[in-house]
Design a protein around this nucleic acid. Sequence first.
DNA 1: GCTTGACCTCAAGTCGACTTGAACTGGCAC
DNA 2: GTGCCAGTTCAAGTCGACTTGAGGTCAAGC
Lengths: 142, 142
Amino acid sequence: MRDLDITEVARRSGVPASTLRFYEARGLLSSTGRRGLRRLFAPDVLERLSLIAMGRAAGFSLEDIARMFAPDGRLRLDRKLLSARADELDRTIRELSAMRDGLRHAAVCPAPSHLECPTFRRILRSTAPAARSKRTPPKPRR
Amino acid sequence: MRDLDITEVARRSGVPASTLRFYEARGLLSSTGRRGLRRLFAPDVLERLSLIAMGRAAGFSLEDIARMFAPDGRLRLDRKLLSARADELDRTIRELSAMRDGLRHAAVCPAPSHLECPTFRRILRSTAPAARSKRTPPKPRR
DNA sequence: GCTTGACCTCAAGTCGACTTGAACTGGCAC
DNA sequence: GTGCCAGTTCAAGTCGACTTGAGGTCAAGC
C-alpha cells in the first residue's frame, strides 16, 4: 500500500489532522516524508493510532504512551506498568460502581430531602475519604 | 456550635483554604461573615463540602453541583440528571472493565510481540470505535 | 503602638491534550 | 505562468479546577 497523506489518515482514522501533527511533534507518530509540504505516513500509522487510542482509553498519558514505542517503532510494553494501571482501574471501577448505585438510589428515593435518606448519607460518608484521594472520574469531552 | 473560621474548616475537611475561597467565588459555598478579614462559615459547611466531594466523585462539574443547591442552601437534586449520570457511569464502568481485563492479559501474555496476540488485537479493535467517543478515563490528580 | 503572621484580594500561572489563528508555501488546474 | 486551496509553521488560546504570587490589611501579643 502506498503512503497516505495526512488528509487520508485523518479520514480513515477519524483523528483530526491537527491532532496528527500534534502527535508527530510529541514523538508518537512519524511521517515518512512529504509530497510538497504535505506529510506522508506509512499505512501502519493507522494501527499506531489505534494503539494510541487504546492507551488513552486505558488512562495513560501521551508521554507514557510515547515511551511504549521503541525507537524502531515496535511496541515495548512494560508489564509492571500495565498491571499497575489495571489495579488502578480496578479501584476506580469499584468507586464508580458505588457512585452509580448511589445515583440510581437518589434518583428514586422518596425521602423528602436526600439528606434524610440513610442510603444517601451512607454514600456521603463513604465518599468523604475518597475525596481526599484527589481522584477525578471520567468526563465526556466535547 | 460556633461558626468556624476558614482555617478550622480547612483543617476539619481537608480542603485547602484556597479551594474554600475558590468554591465561595463559584457560589458553591457561602461564608456567614468575617472576623476581621477572616471568613467565618456555619458548621454545616462541612456537610456541604462532603456533598461537593460526592458530586465531584460522581463526575459532575462544579457548575452542575452549584445548581444542585437551592438559593436557600437546600439540596435540589434533579432526578433525571442523576439517572443520566448513572447511565453514563455504567457505560464508563463497562469500558474500563474491558480495558482492565485487556491490561491484565497484556501483562502476562507470552506472545513475543503484543501485536501477535489475538486477545490484544481484539481489544485493539474494540477500542478503536470507543476512541471516537472522546471519552477520557479517570486520572489520579496530584 | 508597633510588629508579626495569617488571612485577604486579584491576577496570573499550571496541567494535559488539543485547537485555533495568522502568515506562509507549493502542487495542480487552467 | 498564475491563482487557488489545502496544506504548512509557530505561537497562542481553550477548558476545568485549582494553586500561586504580589501586595494589602487586620487582630493580637509584647
